[in-house]
């Protein structure tokens, strides 16, 4: 498991509240959530569907607008960032992995992995080198030219993980990364994430409601109806 003696947290969340809608139709997705994540930790956020996991991850990654509370990621105050600042945060600091993979079906695996590098303006040769390295890391060296439709769900999710790692993010946010996979493939994907934490020293915040996958996490945050109910070290 990751070291726990790191001083400065990479993620600091304080008094986070998020409400969707207004009046009688208002839904309190998050209600006073506070926690910290240290560098090199793999933290699992668990809870039933609708408990606020995705909202929490989207807010931490700057994909959703902050209403109340503070979020600091790698020293950057997320609430104080404008649109360009949020783009830069997602481009340079945070990597995302989604349940539905989000791969471009008309592009090959290597082209999909290379998208964040194109956004950063990385030269072609350097980009190709990095993409090859990432595909090797996720065990898909022989599938570089395949399109998502020609790959299994587990392979597609590994391509998505390679894409999320392309810009060497300090924080990887994974929202139900095994949600569309069978239990064996899901466990393999989680083991891959665990391996990345240990090999690269990366921090991972992963939402899941699969209890078998939680065992691989350093810490577990339990969300229920938008509130943090338990805070457990594995």
């Amino acid at each position: 498991m990751a070291a726990t003696t790191i001083t400065e947290p990479i993620v600091q969340v304080t008094g986070l509240r998020r409400v969707y809608g207004s009046g009688d139709a208002a839904v309190r997705a998050l209600d006073g959530v506070s926690f910290e994540v240290s560098p090199g930790e793999l933290v699992a956020v668990v809870g039933r569907s609708g408990s606020g996991k995705t909202t929490l991850l989207n807010l931490v990654g700057g994909l959703d607008a902050l209403q109340e509370g503070t979020i600091t990621v790698a020293g950057r105050d997320v609430g104080g960032l404008d649109e360009a600042g949020l783009d830069a945060l997602r481009r340079d600091v945070v990597g995302f992995v989604f349940q539905s993979f989000g791969l471009v079906p008309t592009l090959s695996a290597s082209e999909n992995v290379g998208i964040p590098l194109r956004l950063r303006g990385v030269p072609v040769e350097e980009r190709e080198e990095r993409v090859a390295l990432l595909l090797e890391l996720v065990g898909l060296s022989g599938h570089a030219a395949q399109r998502p439709g020609e790959m299994s769900g587990g392979q597609q999710q590994r391509v998505a993980i390679a894409r999320a790692l392309a810009s060497s993010p300090r924080l990887l946010i994974a929202d139900e990364p095994t949600g569309q996979l069978d239990s064996e493939t899901g466990l393999a994907v989680m083991a891959l994430l665990r391996g990345i934490v240990e090999a690269e020293g990366m921090t991972i915040l992963v939402a899941t409601h699969d209890p078998t996958l939680v065992a691989l996490a350093d810490r577990v945050l339990h969300l229920q109806d938008g509130q943090l109910t338990q805070h457990v070290a594995s």
């Binding site: 997602r90 481009r91 989000g102 791969l103 471009v104 956004l119 950063r120 998505a160 810009s167």
Partner: peptide, 14 residues
């Protein structure tokens, strides 16, 4: 489908 665009936006795309 929105997933692809969301992934590119999440990668820092304008």
């Amino acid at each position: 489908p929105g997933g692809t665009a969301e992934a590119v936006r999440a990668a820092g795309g304008t």
